[in-house]
Design a protein around this nucleic acid. Structure first.
Lengths: 371, 371
DNA sequence: CCAGTTGCCGAAACCGGTTTCGGAGTTTAT
DNA sequence: ATAAACTCCGAAACCGGTTTCGGCAACTGG
């Protein structure tokens, strides 16, 4: 059960105390900023601690203080791996901020909603983490309810409706949607479709708002026939595109709330012989790396995930230290990546309909694409 | 410094002991399989523990046992974020295996080599983790040397030259390269270029071996002019492609050791007006999601990262428990994803050279593409 | 029947910290 | 000068476990 063990003897708080002729209690208080320690003593202790290379064992602290100095992140893996591309930079941001304050990041994964709650419970039960970062908030989020009822600190990556006790960091997706509509409008488009993500995500409601507001600002007519939702994956995005393009008066501009779904739009457009970026325009949101390698590269709003991670870690630590959640709410703008999937209006809605119709005929026999 | 704290009172080992009329020492021994506990007592204890919902506090255990039951993973972020797409499934695998044995995953990031060693040292120094999974092994790997000298358990995701004390899990990239060459050969290609990753990675040496062996098996001539290395990113891959295609007798088939670099090949091919999958063929290795959205979809060897993570976590835990590293070495095959970036020989090397030459002329004027 | 094992558990030390309590020495107020 | 109030630190309990040690009772063997 042992072996493979480390050898080097750690230097403990007692070592520091001994070499200073103090007791470990005094050293502890000196290091932790208690007021009943003479300033000169505190300095001696701190100096000795650094020259000896002492650093407290967080486990030992945790057992008494109850705080592990660890932030928790539980990823839902089955979730149409939308997480994937988000992850690397995000983790870097979180750990960077965490380490700078002497904290660590504990990550776990869950395969279902129940698994998620079980995992959260286990981590907090075993005191492995002091709080959580919750990515991708839902309209009805069981994680929030659970943690709130348990009194466990958490910070949302995203916003939510029931803001009670919630701290968050979020990107203003609604502003991005609004700007996208105006960009389409500036390019002469008037029939702008909106393909939203799943209604279970809170961000979907925000992005819809943004779309509607953008349409209003641009003075464009809202047609519910070209507003869809529930597209988070490539397949779902492709299906939505098929439906929209098959309309009698198809939209010429497509605003997607989610990059992966927008990549599905490419698939449909291609199979209909439509050239993305000229025949039809699409703008999306997320900034996934796949978008840069699509043909043509996807115009999208990118979020700085590194920064998001960093801020979230910071906010969570503040929250754990007792800051009021109301004070811990930050939002930021997404950044437009102007690429080639959108452009000036080239085909009218009617011409587009014709093209689609023609292509549908040819499709009955020949299959295949080329490039 | 406090507040926001949990309320519910944990039940401790003393609670279990008290409600059984035993001492906590006895309960501890009963739960941990000590032989000096009567079987009937052990059963009573276990039953009571579960009905009371007792689970030991890992920190409290760690302080005495020295083991935090946590596996460490330090990601190098500056590393041409090749990590990105690898990550999600990998983490899921690691945490799945870890949790099933009551362990957790602590992740950190490092921004440079020194930062990496510092971070490793810190984590083990503070006893935050009991060992590490080291992804992407280098030919000369400072992490390995450091951990070996410190006596800290670790497991490699990849192999290495100095196998002393090393346990690992790896995918047989060399077999994949070999199979790819043969696939090209079966399609009539004879001039097969190889674009390797950076020579600092150990896998590059293996993949080169695989390429050479594949060429030998297929009876193809090896021409050092069409064997390159150092391409891990899109840009580097694109640059290599430019050089190779500018040769008097350019290759018609391109074997890339790294997907991201292969995506750079697309860029170059496109700018030269070459159609990937027909005019020129490319096969690669990694199975990054971006490849599926390239046009045409990239034929590549995919590795099951979820499984890799799972096995690595398991191996590391065994290693920490004292198993000999020689016993902890596993390898597996990559899986070919037959997509559309390769095909039968269509253009001879000479015809290809001509096409490239013509295109180079037209290129002097027009310029576009960005990402 | 008695000495020597063996089985089983309690008592207590221990791990490396934190926190409470009290008291000695010094300063301030009267 | 003395009482009261501070300053500052030692002593010891404590957190929640693990591990060592020793001893009692029940078996053995001779």
């Amino acid at each position: 059960m042992r072996s493979a063990g480390r050898s080097k003897q750690r230097i403990t708080i007692s070592d520091v105390a001994k070499s200073l002729g103090l007791t470990k209690g005094t050293v502890s208080r000196a290091l932790n900023g208690y007021p009943d320690i003479a300033e000169v003593t505190r300095n001696r202790v701190q100096k000795m601690a650094t020259t000896l290379g002492y650093s407290p064992l967080s486990h030992a602290q945790a057992i008494r203080t109850g705080y592990a100095k660890s932030i928790g992140l539980v990823l839902q893996v089955d979730e149409h791996d939308a997480h994937g591309p988000f992850l690397a930079g995000f983790l870097a941001g979180v750990t960077k901020a965490a380490t700078s304050e002497g904290w660590t990041l504990t990550v776990a994964t869950a395969e279902s909603d129940e698994d998620m709650l079980r995992t959260l419970a286990r981590l907090v039960d075993e005191r492995k983490v002091d709080g959580f970062i919750l990515p991708r908030t839902f309209v009805e989020d069981p994680r929030v309810e659970f943690l709130r009822s348990e009194g466990v600190p958490f910070v949302l990556y995203g916003r939510t409706s029931d803001t009670d006790g919630c701290a968050w960091y979020d990107i203003l997706g609604e502003k991005a949607m609004e700007a996208a509509v105006q960009r389409f409008h500036d390019h002469g488009h008037t029939r702008v479709a909106f393909v939203n993500g799943g209604p279970q995500y809170f961000y979907s409601s925000l992005r819809l708002q943004g779309y509607l507001s953008g349409m209003a600002v641009s003075g464009l007519q809202i047609d519910n026939a070209i507003v869809r939702s529930g597209a988070d994956t490539v397949e779902q995005g492709a299906a939505a595109a098929e439906l929209l393009l098959a309309l009698p008066r198809p939209p010429t501009a497509f605003l997607y709330a989610v990059d992966m779904a927008a990549l599905g739009f490419y698939r449909t457009a291609q199979s209909l012989g439509l050239s993305v970026g000229s025949d039809v325009s699409v703008i999306s949101y997320d900034g996934v790396p796949e978008g840069a390698f699509a043909d043509p590269p996807l115009t999208t709003f990118s979020v700085n995930r590194h920064r998001a991670g960093q801020r979230l870690a910071h906010l969570l630590i503040e929250r754990i230290h007792g800051a009021a959640p109301e004070r811990l709410r930050e939002t930021e703008q997404a950044q437009l990546l102007e690429r080639q999937s959108d452009g000036p209006l080239a085909l009218t809605s009617e011409e587009l309909a014709e093209r689609v119709h023609d292509s549908a005929h040819r499709r009955s026999s020949g299959k295949e694409k080329e490039q």
